[in-house]
Amino acid sequence: MKVELEDVTFRVSSFSLGPLDFSVEEGTITAIIGKNGSGKSTTLKLIHGDLKPNTGSVSIDSSKVSSLSSAELAEKTSFVWQEIYNPMSFSVRDVMNVSGYKRGNDEDSMGEALESVGLSSLIDMDFSVLSGGERRLVTVAAAIYQDSEIMIMDEPTNFLDIDNQIVVYKLLKRLRDAGKTLILTMHDLDAVHNLADSVLILRGGRKVAWGSTSSTLNIENLNKAFNVSFHSYDTVNGSAFAGSYKG
């Protein structure tokens, strides 16, 4: 499913975002990068219809997001939130059940989704006693379990150690290869470099660059987006970025 933004602008008190004008192709990973407060999460919420743009429109699969009911939206997209409320005494299963609201619950798919993040043994654990990283993985698994074509993730690797970050990166690639469309925000530029097909770079709510990763994720654009001087260097795995603060 294609996601299209046409001349989207959004304003709340002193912060304004946009205009954003791009379309995300089916079966790709799109990363949104930028400093804290540059409008990454806001963009995700605009795509998901949680915020209404002041001008322009967002459409998923050529229907306007604003005209979709929550049930229709849930069938098309899932969302991994940066923060979720700690639900009183929920087990992992309860959290997963919530994400199965639309598709109907089914033990096997739930087990598979949890297994994909390596946590199927925690299914009857209390969600609140899990570590921050485990909770993060459970919410990713819940989004997978929701089984929608588009997955929006706000910093899916937050709280994760390096092992689990790699688990998630591999998982994201597998999901893309299975035809899912992924839109996510991330801070790890090397991961973006290795993972994303397209990149949107934001600074202060303005688009710095948009396009394929190879044409967009370069030192020139990164220097515009961050207060850091970047340089790239070669590693055995390809090129990587390093930066020093511009003071």
């Binding site: 919420k45 949680d50 849930a74 997209t77 639900p87 009183m88 929920f90 959290v95 639309k102």
Partner: peptide, 13 residues
């Protein structure tokens, strides 16, 4: 119970 926005994203009115 997991948040209004999350509830909406899983399809709850």
């Amino acid at each position: 119970q997991m948040g209004d926005m999350h509830a909406r994203s899983v399809g709850v009115n």
